[in-house]
Design a protein around this nucleic acid. Structure first.
Lengths: 333, 333
DNA sequence: TTGTATGCGTTATCAG
DNA sequence: CTGATAACGCATACAA
């Protein structure tokens, strides 16, 4: 079997207690024996058993990360950033894809807590039903729960968000300054993030007294095809718009392509500032929601909450979005 | 503290052994007591402690997944597929991003095995140096190691690959049939996959006696900008090519865009058949390397190797690539 | 079918 | 500074 602290204790003529002490770095051990023990640990190729360690400490330094779909470029980027940050603090990441939010996703929470993860980070809105949120809240009583781009306003939960409402609002202002009088808004879902973006859009429209026609706000699936289809349909129906704003880059890509096919050259702004925006022709402007900042903040919270006593950590951390202008922004309506 | 089998044993007036038995489903327990125990487990909200369980079974049903970068759309998709498949068999996924292959990535292997994962799946080529591979081989003596799109030809390692060589070869044939006499090939790295694609390209060129000029094979970074730059440079240098083939969709996107900017309308074929190919205008043809099949096969291997005795599992599983034709393929040189 | 007793590898609490 | 020894929660060989 594997080699244990008993083996190296015996080899060093000490008790397992002292071995355990040098293992945990802490406590008082004579420099001489510590060095000796460390050496023989290397020599014998000793590796502490994580399960036994977990039993004693009730922790295996694992963080559960939950999102609806890592295949989505945005979540993938977030997971990548979180993984990198957490690894630097010797945490491992256990990934959980819920798929679309069915309202009965609490099993993913249960699964993760059953593994006794040290904390949970959610990205986006994997949970929206009352039941799921209640479950998440219950978990939060035991371990830190950090939500990126969500805010359940529950005790013991920490929220890290980008102010996308303000971002969308400023995007509308930017378009207006270009001379656009009517802006089409395409969105996919009313998640926390989705709702705020829509609110920001509406606020911008209202403030500037732009065309507030209901037809200029359309909800569609998060796919290229859906975006192209809706543009085709609106143009066929003679709906007039002088710019397009979307809740997601992929929608902007499809919308711009369809519009161009109809000869409509107009400013298009996506959201998330993913590589998709750069793949389109012309390249798409996009609202950057500062994912790197969000993830870094989440990692910091984890560290604070698990390694220190986490007395004074912010319940809510907020960043500003930033409009990244590209070719699509040069287009005049 | 948490509630244990002792608690429910006491509540049911049985020994912890019987409780443990119903927990493991196995063994012979009277249907009556089993039902009773199961009920009180529910009532008391009992959750088995994974660390204790791990100590006894030396397994926590966790699979380590390693790739260079989940932020990359291709790896992200793979991770998503693996996670879904493994979850259905009650495995959790522990993610490891190595970043670029530095040749000294074995620490990621060590980290993962230190957590006693049940198996390791690598995607792409996170390890290429002698030392790293040796380390991986050593791990393979203990747990199953499955490599997707790599083949180290080591004992106890299982390889799942797509025959991209043949795929690239057939792509060249398809272009030739369109009348192209000279094909530009752009690639980013000579990973296992990268090498085979290049080999397939070369073979196709040779077979059909197409233009085999060295200038028609270019290695560049895996970025849009790099692809655009090389096209600009080649055209400036009067290098003649009638079609473009790339090792990665993102390169195809950039290359097509740059070519179009110069007024060159020609067939462009990417690889991986990611959403990037569909975001380009015109939409890009792409060599689909059947990631879903690869991942499903990997999951199957894991199940066979961990749950059965895994006596007769294939050491190498191979799928064929498929050329997906889109608008970019209609373009005539 | 059920119970007893021991092992799994660490951590932590006592004494010395 | 160091050594016994008791948890930690569960699995299991051996008895009954």
């Amino acid at each position: 079997m594997n080699i244990t602290i008993y083996d190296i204790a015996q080899q060093c003529n000490v008790s397992i207690a002292t071995v355990s002490r040098v293992l945990n770095g802490s406590s008082r051990v004579s420099e001489k024996t510590r060095a000796f023990i460390l050496q023989t640990m290397k020599d014998m190729g000793y590796k502490p058993n994580p399960f036994a360690r977990g039993l004693g400490l009730d922790s295996m330094k694992i963080i559960g990360v939950i999102c609806t779909d890592v295949a989505d470029i945005f979540y993938a980027h977030a997971v990548s950033l979180l993984e990198d940050g957490l690894r630097q603090h010797h945490f491992d990441v256990m990934l959980s894809n819920t798929g679309t939010d069915t309202g009965r996703n609490s099993k993913y929470i249960t699964d993760l807590t059953a593994k006794h993860v040290d904390a949970i980070i959610t990205i986006g809105t994997p949970f929206s039903s009352e039941a799921d949120i209640r479950q998440l809240q219950k978990v939060a009583e035991t371990i830190p729960v950090i939500t990126i781009n969500s805010d359940y306003h529950q005790p013991n939960m920490y929220s890290v968000v980008c102010n996308e409402k303000e971002g969308m609002r400023s995007a509308v202002h930017a378009l207006a300054k270009k001379g656009c009088q009517s802006v089409l808004y395409l969105y996919d879902a009313l998640t926390y993030s989705g709702r705020h973006k829509l609110d920001g859009f509406r606020e911008g429209i209202r403030e500037l007294k732009l065309d507030a026609s209901a037809k200029l706000i359309q909800q569609i699936p998060r796919t290229l095809a859906a975006a192209e289809a809706i543009i085709d349909r609106l143009i066929a129906a003679d709906v007039h718009f002088e710019a397009i704003l979307t809740s997601e880059d992929v929608l902007a890509v499809g919308a711009q392509r369809a519009a161009l096919r109809h000869g409509h050259v107009l400013p298009v702004i996506g959201c998330n500032n993913s590589i998709l925006a750069q793949c389109a022709t012309p390249t798409l402007s996009s609202l950057d929601n500062k994912l790197a900042n969000l993830c870094a903040a989440a990692v910091n919270l984890i560290i604070q909450l698990t390694e220190t006593d986490g007395a004074a950590v912010p319940v809510r951390t907020e960043f500003n979005a930033e409009l990244v202008e590209r070719e699509s922004f040069q287009s005049r309506p």
